[in-house]
Computed example of a mutant assay.
Amino acid sequence: MSKISIIIPTINEANNLPLLLSDLSSIQKEGEIIIVDCGSEDKTIDIANIYGAKVCISKERNRGFQLNLGAKNSKGDWLIFLHADTRLNHDWFRKINSFLKGNKNSIYYFKFKINNKKIVYRVLEILVNFRSRFFKQPYGDQGLIIHRTTYLKNNGFRKIPLMEDVDFLRRLKKTIDLKQLNSSIFISSRKWERTNIFLQAIKNWQFRRRWLKGESLKSIYSDYYKK
């Protein structure tokens, strides 16, 4: 059994994936990298193969389904879920190694940083890290590190196209301790570059509110991808 399994859902991520896979190359014999692709038309799968990642093909364009498929095909004691457009520090594995020897019932996540020098993103970083640490609400783009037994015991990610991270952590928040790592994950600013970041934050909050009130994810998904 590998020590860790890193699970990355993809769809046309050829521009971003080589950077992340380079960051992850330091794990070598410590674990495995699993790319779960849902129909990329670029070189995503070729890049995954070049870097020696295991490739799983998802029959659905559904991130919750992809993450769960990756977990089912993994062998690691610890599951690390990452987005393809993120980056990690060169010493990320050394920093998390001590946590992997500790409490298997905790879920760990990285400090949130945005890979853009604009000052406005520093404000967003402060707000997100405050929300994550004090309200126990990290999201999937911050990287989630979960022990296999905890993941399986709590039925993993539901097969939903949006809010899979919110749904999973809401189910676990009262029984599992969420801990922020002393290491940052660098998020691509691409999702905010075409809009005002604070207006987008409000829109995202409204999407979550609609979902929590019971609105169908099909309707929310349609509105989310109109942008």
Rank of each mutant, 00 (worst) to 15 (best):
S5I: 13
L20N: 05
L21W: 04
S22V: 03
L24N: 00
G31E: 11
E32Y: 03
S40N: 00
E41I: 12
D42C: 05
T44A: 07
I47R: 10
I47M: 10
A48M: 01
Y51N: 08
A53E: 02
V55D: 01
K59M: 02
R63N: 03
R63S: 07
G64F: 01
G64S: 02
G64M: 04
Q66A: 14
K72Q: 14
S74P: 04
S74L: 06
H83R: 07
A84H: 05
R87W: 05
H90V: 14
D91G: 05
R94W: 04
R94G: 11
L100W: 10
G102S: 15
N103G: 06
S106A: 15
S106F: 14
I107C: 12
K111A: 14
I114Y: 03
K117W: 02
I119S: 11
V120P: 05
V120E: 12
V120L: 13
V120I: 15
Y121Q: 10
L124Y: 13
V128L: 14
F130E: 02
S132H: 06
P138S: 13
Y139S: 13
D141V: 15
L144D: 02
T150L: 15
R158V: 02
P161N: 07
E164D: 14
L169M: 13
R170Q: 12
R171L: 03
R171T: 00
R171Q: 02
L172H: 00
T175L: 10
D177F: 06
L178C: 13
Q180C: 11
I185D: 04
I185E: 08
I187R: 10
S189F: 13
W192A: 10
K203N: 10
Q206N: 11
F207L: 07
K213V: 04
S216G: 09
L217Y: 03
I220F: 06
I220S: 08
Y221D: 11
Y221H: 12
D223M: 05
Y224V: 10
